[in-house]
Computed example of a mutant assay.
Amino acid sequence: MIMDYERLYMIGSLPGFSPQISRLVSMMNYARWTTLESVIGLSVPQLDYLSDDQSNSIGSLLKHIAAVEYAYYLNTIVKRELTEAEHKQWDAALQLGDRGRKEIKNNPLNYYIEIFNDVRSMTLKSMSELQDEWLEQSENEPHLGNRSVNNYFKWFHVFEDEINHRGQIRIIRKRIQAGESVR
């Protein structure tokens, strides 16, 4: 993923994107940059650290962030649900909990960064081909009380979810740095 670090603090036009999609991508880029900054240098045991038997690891939260983006990419751009094969690949990350604790571990940081880059590359390539009107397209969402939800909100939710989990990641990292034993 190529990110223009000179424009990281500017919400505005980006080459290759329509005006409103540029603003959305600008926000997504900043959210991703700060997420990556929060995990620099973490080891596999640190990425797999669980503070208790109900918590999620940093690694599982990173894969969750990518899984949410992939699911919304399919929903809003490709206009389909996950296939059976994609469910096998992403469900542990989407659901987290016990399955995430069992299945998402023993991966180096580069593993998660590659997933981030792969998913984001698909997202940005597709978004570069869309016009601002796409953001306004809406549909009723059963899991939100059958309310009408537009693509702009869905993509706001993608990076809002990332920001939320980045906060969890920072708390977990502080606990590790404060000396909690890494299991």
Rank of each mutant, 00 (worst) to 15 (best):
S57I: 09
K88A: 10
L74A: 07
I113Q: 05
E84V: 11
T34Q: 06
S18M: 08
W33Y: 13
P19F: 01
L135M: 09
I172M: 06
L130Q: 14
K125I: 00
P45F: 12
K102W: 03
L96K: 01
V25Y: 03
E141T: 11
Y9Q: 12
S57H: 05
L82G: 02
Y5V: 15
Y112I: 01
M27C: 11
R99Y: 02
R80F: 00
R120K: 12
E114D: 10
Q54V: 06
G100K: 02
S57Y: 03
T83C: 04
Q131S: 12
G145I: 07
I176Y: 08
I115Q: 01
G16T: 14
S126K: 15
V119L: 08
A67E: 00
V158G: 01
L82Q: 00
R147Y: 10
Y72K: 15
G145P: 10
A66F: 08
L62T: 03
S60P: 02
E160M: 10
H165K: 14
E69W: 13
R32Q: 04
S138F: 07
I58A: 02
E139F: 12
H165L: 13
Q95K: 08
A71C: 06
P142Q: 11
R175M: 15
K102V: 06
V119Q: 06
L74H: 09
G167S: 05
Y112K: 00
H165W: 06
R183T: 11
L130G: 04
G12M: 03
I2H: 15
R80E: 01
V68L: 04
Y49I: 02
I172A: 03
L94V: 09
I171S: 12
H64I: 06
E133V: 09
H64V: 06
I113Y: 08
I163F: 03
N146Y: 14
T76P: 04
L74S: 07
L14E: 02
E6F: 14
P19V: 06
P108C: 03
A66D: 02
Q168F: 00
S121Q: 15
G41S: 14
R183E: 14
G59M: 08
